[in-house]
Each structure stands twice: as structure tokens, then as C-alpha cells.
Design a protein around this nucleic acid. Structure first.
Lengths: 230, 230
DNA sequence: AAGAGTTTGTGAACGCGTTCTCAAAATCGA
DNA sequence: TCGATTTTGAGAACGCGTTCACAAACTCTT
């Protein structure tokens, strides 16, 4: 999970609010919690309520929200709809974001059909692959294009975000192609590091590593059992 | 991403090494980097080499490794095979870990076919679903079982790790079933928080949130462009 | 109007993780 | 053997993020 960001110093006109990365990562969680509250008809909630719903410490929630502004009322709490809108605006969810998925193997296909994206302002706009058997086929209602057409597709549909869902060996080549095509944010599911130029953000999701971390703790638990019980 | 750990104070026999969470999360990355070095025939490497391969700061790498012990030689570096083995042992990768996947929709199916698991000591041992149409079908060579049979399957195959790949609404029910069945580590792909008793570890991977974080930075870049260019 | 009760927003303390730095330990060449 | 060079391991400084704690601001009751 590597985030590269150019840290331009800006003129005073732009307040350079600089929301901490840790906070940014939690805002979508709060948004989801708020939507749950809206659905169950809640009009107002305290930081305690919302924190419980989001699974965080209330103080942390308030500190996070304080980075956006003062959207609560002391003694009352937060207006659920209002706060929801403010967070959505802050993280750019008042617009839809088109993404292109490169690699339509099992994982890429699953992602292209993922239900959770549409309600979060994410739209899978294009699928790309290198395999001749896959190019031209239709997956989740989208025709798979050739990697060569990436630049044209990205330009035409103004896509800013790309997803790498290829094997590890292809990841760097695909990342280069994405950057070349004008993509400036990449979500990388391939088990490999990718190098990108300054100004391009990369986040990495590594399925094996998540399980390996669990396995470590699991082994630790087993070891403790042996010490305690045996 | 919530990790609950019982913090037993142990007798001196077990040193209670307590490797920091941040380090644990990077050990699999180092392992992957080391395997890459092994494949290209490297016998020894410095912390600089390995750090470059893993994409981290050399000082961080050395600090991380120092938590495991002193496996390097000053003036020389690390023996690649030896260090690889030591890390593998530390994170429990000298044995295979069986996992059960609950929910064989698009994502669950993709995970069950994921190539990256086997080389990392992860074996998908069972698939479970609630949908009658899916139960009994074969996916990636594994017959899908009913959720009711979970306890029997977990017990029989001594599975410790479960993966939730269901819609958000089903997540808590599935988590309860997994805990009931004896699972003590859960990787949750469903877009929902799950509550588990003490002693059970849960890690969460949220695909939408990863993209929403990228969208935030993307929006920020677009905003800066406007300020700078026009 | 005033006091009791809530709840936010934030300064301050704290803790964890990262990075800097350098002594200690090894190799190598003369 | 000795000095030059390389590289690890770890102490110390630093910075970020979390949590505590409380004043400020609001509602409600009397």
C-alpha cells in the first residue's frame, strides 16, 4: 500500500487542508455507517452512535470529522443527511468515477461484476486484457478490449483510475501502459510491486499477505495453547 | 482491520517476542522479495538490496529483521536462503494453512481459483454457501457444501481460517457461524463490520473503500490542477 | 432566566512506527 | 597484523496517529 503524492506548497488561496491519510481511509467507513443510519430512519446521531456503527473510538471519529469542518451541533450531535453529504463531497462521491480493469481472469471478472461498487460511486467503464481468446468477449455486459486500445479508451471516457488484476509477472508492464494511457491512480491486486512516476498514486491489495498475517497470529495462538495447556 | 489479541503475560520460558503488527504485515513482503532473489540465483544480499526489492527503506528492513533475531552478518549481508527460511518459520509458512471460503459468488469463486495462494502456504480446503443452486456444484475442483455442515468440515479438516465472501447483509451471520464452528481467524471481504468474541482475529479487505481512497486523491489532484492551471 | 444535562471540538499527552545515526563486527588488501 | 571498507544491529530522535480530558456551546426543565 504505497501512496506517492507530490507535496506542492500552494499559495494561500488554497487552504491546503491536508486531511491525514489515516482519516481519509476512514471517511468511506463513516459514509457507509451514515447510510445505514439513514436507511433506518435516523435523523440525528451523536458521535457515540456513529462511532459504534462504524466500529471506531468516538474521540477518533470526532477528531476525524474536525478535519473537514464543524458539521455537528454541541449538545445535539450530527444531522445524518447533512454530514453524509459533506463527507461524500469531501471524498468526491458526489460524482461517479469510471475505472478500467486490466486482466479479466477470475479476479478481474469478479471485480467487474462486484455489486458493491455502484452504490459507492464507482463504475467499471472498461475491461482490458491481452489474451486473444478474451478480447471481444463480453463480461458483465462490457466487451473486453485489447491492451493496445487502452490509451484511446482512457482518453475517450476520461478514466482516471485503473485496476491491475493480472498475474504478478505482467503487473509492471500493465502499470506502465496505464500510466502511458494517462491513468493517475492505480489499485494493484497483482502480487508484485509496481514502480510509477511521481504524481501517480498506487494502492496495493495483496490477498495472500492478508491470509499470511492471519496465519502468523494463528500460529502464535497455537503456540500459546501449547505453553498454557500442554 | 481489527486485530484482537489476548496479551497473556507468559513465563520466561517463552520470550514473548511480540513482533510489532507493522512488522508482521511486512514479513510476507520480504519473503516474496527473498524468493525472487533465490530464483535469480542470489546467495547473499545486503539490506539495501533486499529493501529495494521489497520497496521499503533499508533501515526499516533492518529494524524489522532485528525483531526476529540476528540473522545477518556485518560487513557481508544476509544469506538469502537462510533468512528466507527464518522468516517463513516465523510467520508459520513452513506448514500449509487450510482455509474455508463462505460464499461462492463471483468473488468467492475467484478466490477459490486464485493461483497466488498455493505458493504462499494457503490451501482452499472447503467452499460453503447457503444457496441451494450452488450447494453440490463443483468450483475449482471443490464441491460446495451447505452452511449447516460448516462445523463438521472445520472440525474434520482442522481449519482455523475462514474467508467471508458474501454480500454485506450476510456477513455477521456467517461470522457467527464461523466462530461457532471453531474458526479463530477471519478474512472479511464483505462490506460490513463483523463482531467477534475475544480471541478471534478479523482482518477486513474492502474493495470499494480502496477505490474511494484513490478517488479522493484523484479529486484532490483535479482541484489542484484547476488552481494551478486555470 | 438559570441550572442541569448533553455533546461537540480541540489542546495536550501518549504511544507506536519510522528514520537517522553510529558503534560493533565482519571482510579484504597490503 | 593493521588499516580501510562494508554492513549490520540498535539507541535515540522524530513524526504521525490515537486517546484523554475538558471548555464551549447547545437543549431542556423548572
Amino acid at each position: 500500500m504505497t501512496i506517492l503524492r507530490s507535496s506542492h506548497r500552494l499559495p494561500a488561496a488554497t487552504p491546503e487542508r491536508g486531511i491525514p491519510d489515516a482519516t481519509v481511509a476512514r471517511l468511506p467507513v463513516y459514509l457507509r455507517a451514515l447510510n445505514a443510519l439513514i436507511e433506518q430512519g435516523t435523523g440525528t446521531c451523536s458521535s457515540n452512535d456513529l462511532a459504534a456503527q462504524a466500529g471506531v473510538n468516538p474521540a477518533k471519529l470526532r477528531k476525524d470529522l474536525s478535519h473537514l469542518g464543524s458539521y455537528g451541533t454541541r449538545g445535539v450531535g450530527y444531522d445524518v443527511e447533512y454530514l453524509s453529504y459533506q463527507i461524500a463531497r469531501e471524498i468526491g462521491q458526489t460524482q461517479d468515477w469510471d475505472v478500467v480493469i486490466v486482466g479479466v481472469g477470475n479476479l478481474g471478472s469478479a471485480l467487474s461484476a462486484y455489486q458493491g461498487f455502484s452504490t459507492r460511486g464507482i463504475r467499471v467503464a472498461a475491461l482490458v486484457d491481452t489474451s486473444p481468446e478474451r478480447i471481444g468477449t463480453e463480461i458483465s455486459g462490457i466487451t473486453v478490449s485489447a491492451l493496445q486500445d487502452l490509451t484511446a479508451i482512457v482518453a475517450e471516457r476520461e478514466i482516471a483510475i485503473g485496476i491491475i488484476a493480472t498475474p504478478g509477472e505482467a503487473a509492471q508492464k500493465v502499470a506502465d501502459a496505464l500510466v502511458e494511457a494517462g491513468i493517475t491512480s492505480i489499485l494493484n491486486f497483482a502480487p508484485a510491486l509496481v514502480q510509477v512516476p511521481e504524481g501517480v498514486d498506487v494502492r496495493k491489495v495483496d490477498l495472500s499477505i492478508e491470509l499470511q498475517i492471519l496465519a502468523y497470529h494463528e500460529q502464535r495462538k497455537a503456540g500459546l495453547d501449547k505453553v498454557v495447556n500442554g
